[in-house]
Design a protein around this nucleic acid. Structure first.
Lengths: 145, 145
DNA sequence: GTTTTAAATAGAAACGATTTTCATTTAGAT
DNA sequence: ATCTAAATGAAAATCGTTTCTATTTAAAAC
C-alpha cells in the first residue's frame, strides 16, 4: 500500500515526503469525505506542527491529478475523498454519516444528446451529486424510533 | 410584469418594496446567472446607496421560495438566476457567456433505483449541473478562427 | 388620513475558510 | 557530501458572506 502511494507520487513528479504519504494513507482508509481541517486533526497525531496550508496545497495537487476527488458542498466548504476507481462515475453521499458510495449509471449520454441536438450547444462537463441516507443510517433511524 | 412580481411577493408574505421589485425585474430580464455583487452594480443605477447585505438577504429569500435558483459554482461563490419554470428540471450553463438554459430530461429515476435497490440507501435529493458552450458561443468560436 | 408596529434597510464591523508571503527545511539529483 | 528546487510552517492577508444595530418604511390598525 505504501508502495502504491510512492509510485503514484513518482508518477505525478511530486516529491515523496512523509506528509504526502500520510495524507494519502489517511484519505484512502476513510470512507467518508473530509474537510481540510478534519484531515489536519488526524495528521497532527503524527506531525504536531503540520500547517493548514500544507494540507490545502497537497489536497489540491492530488485532486488536480484525480487521485482524490474534490467536492463543493452546499455549505460552500471544500471536502475531499480518496478515489479508488479510475473510470467515469458519480457519487452518492450520505447526508447523515457522509459515507461516499459509487454510482455507476449516469444518464449523461441522453443529456448530452439533448444539449447538442435540442439546444444546439456543446456539452463539455457535468457535475452530479446525489444525497440521501445510506444503508447503515437507515437502520439506525429505524432502531432509534 | 410588475404585477406578477407584486403577486409573487404577496404570496410569499414579503413586503413589496421598490428594491425587491427591482431585484426581480433585473433577475428575470437576465438570461445569465449573476453574483450578488454584479446584481448590486445594476441596482446602484437606481438606488445609489443599496447595501450588499440587502442584496444577499433578498436573493436568499427568493431562492428559498424557488423564485430564483441558487447555484454553487466551482469557484465556490454564489450565483443566482431567475427561474421561469416551476416544474422539476435542470440547467445547462454556458461556460463562455454564462447563459442558462433548461434541461428537461434528467435520468434521476434510474439513479434513484440504483441507490435504493443496489446500495439499499434512500435518495433524498440531487444536484446536477451541466457545462458547455451554448449555440451563440459556438458560432462565435467558429467565426473568430 | 394618522398612528402603530413589525419588517426591511444601510453601514460598519465581524467572520471564517482559504490563500499568499517569506524565511527555513528537506528530498533527491549531481 | 553538495547543491538546488520543491515543500513546509507561521503569520498575515484576502475576500465573499453574515451579523449587528440604529434607522427607515410598508402596510395593518385605527
Amino acid at each position: 500500500m505504501e508502495h502504491d502511494f510512492y509510485r503514484i507520487l513518482k508518477g505525478l513528479k511530486l516529491k515523496v515526503t512523509p506528509k504526502r504519504i500520510a495524507i494519502m494513507e489517511i484519505m484512502a482508509a476513510e470512507k467518508t469525505y473530509m474537510s481540510p481541517d478534519e484531515l489536519r486533526s488526524k495528521l497532527k497525531q503524527r506531525f504536531k506542527n503540520i500547517g493548514l496550508p500544507t494540507v490545502y496545497r497537497n489536497l489540491e495537487e492530488l485532486a488536480k491529478e484525480g487521485v482524490i476527488i474534490k467536492i463543493i458542498h452546499p455549505d460552500r466548504k471544500l471536502y475531499y475523498f480518496y478515489c479508488h476507481r479510475k473510470e467515469h462515475h458519480h457519487h452518492f453521499v450520505c447526508v447523515s454519516c457522509r459515507r461516499v458510495e459509487d454510482i455507476t449509471f449516469c444518464g449523461m449520454e441522453e443529456i448530452k444528446k439533448e444539449v447538442e441536438d435540442g439546444l444546439k450547444g456543446h456539452m463539455v462537463s457535468h457535475m452530479l451529486q446525489v444525497y440521501g441516507f445510506c444503508k447503515n443510517c437507515l437502520i439506525k433511524q429505524v432502531v432509534s424510533q
